Amino acid sequence: MNLLALETSTEACSVALVHGEEVIARSELAPRRHAELALPMADALLAEAGIGRHALDAIAVGRGPGAFTGVRLGVALAQGMALALDRPVVPVSSLAALALEAPEDEPAILAVIDARMGEVYAACYRRDAAGGLVALDEERVCLPQALELPEADRWNVVGSGWATYAEVLRARLTGTLVQADSERYPQARHVAELAVREFRAGRAVSAEQALPVYLRDKVALTLAEQGRA
């Protein structure tokens, strides 16, 4: 199959192409340049694979949570391409894609993104026998000190939330911290990996049904709140 995946929910802008059994990808840490980079990256991958957009079977996208502007951009690009090509969209959790940045071993995985405004986006997973993910809880946005985690003996932590709130999050873990990497971001190659499974399971949707997931509606502190921060 041929599937193009976009991930623009954080500082990292990435695009990946599944072409048969091969996955090729481009990624750049480029805050505020996603609109400039995403489509040229996609065109470069299609050219490298020697196929045109009409050869695609589906478009996948990291649907958030993450930066509001980035999430909106990624979903809008996926919708636009899907409508133009009359192809389905496979929305994938950006937190799930981030979780696949963790080492391939047995600990539970906490995927945590700095949500600004003193909060984090978080979800917990475990790898299954086939290399996929099993969700251990729900995606949520909350204060790091209020984060409730499932029971697990060992943990891997990935994501920018660790850089900002390491000590607070360490205290929330229910077992031993094996490894933490704050310099990991959701990547399109993992969006593609998860999307192929979703597509084959019949869970692709129409472009109109591919919606962003923000987890919260408020995007900025008021002046009064900034003064209290």
Rank of each mutant, 00 (worst) to 15 (best):
P31C: 10
A102H: 07
L95P: 03
V90D: 00
I51G: 08
E101Y: 01
A207K: 00
A204I: 04
E198T: 06
E151F: 11
A55Q: 13
R228C: 10
L95R: 00
A47W: 02
L143Q: 15
A204N: 10
L211R: 14
P150R: 04
L45V: 12
A115F: 10
E148I: 11
T174M: 05
P31S: 08
G52V: 08
S93F: 06
V18E: 13
L177P: 07
M117Q: 14
G227Q: 13
H54G: 08
A224L: 05
G20T: 02
T10A: 07
A67D: 11
A195R: 09
N156Q: 13
G50L: 06
L215D: 04
L3C: 02
G52A: 15
S27E: 15
A84R: 02
A171E: 13
L6N: 01
A35H: 12
G132Q: 14
I51A: 11
E225V: 08
L29S: 13
Y214D: 01
L169F: 06
I24F: 04
P150D: 04
A146T: 14
R140V: 02
L4H: 00
I113Q: 00
R172I: 10
Q209P: 10
A102N: 01
F199T: 05
G62I: 03
L4F: 04
H54Y: 13
A192R: 01
A16T: 04
P186Q: 04
N2Q: 13
L73I: 13
Q179L: 15
D217G: 15
Y165Q: 06
A12N: 14
M81R: 04
D181A: 08
A123T: 00
E119P: 10
A152I: 03
P88C: 05
L147G: 04
D153L: 11
A130L: 12
A129R: 15
R197S: 10
E193N: 12
L173D: 05
V141F: 01
A192D: 09
V15W: 04
A84Q: 00
L17H: 00
S14Y: 05
T176E: 15
V168Q: 07
D105K: 03
R116H: 12
V89G: 02
L136G: 02
V89D: 01
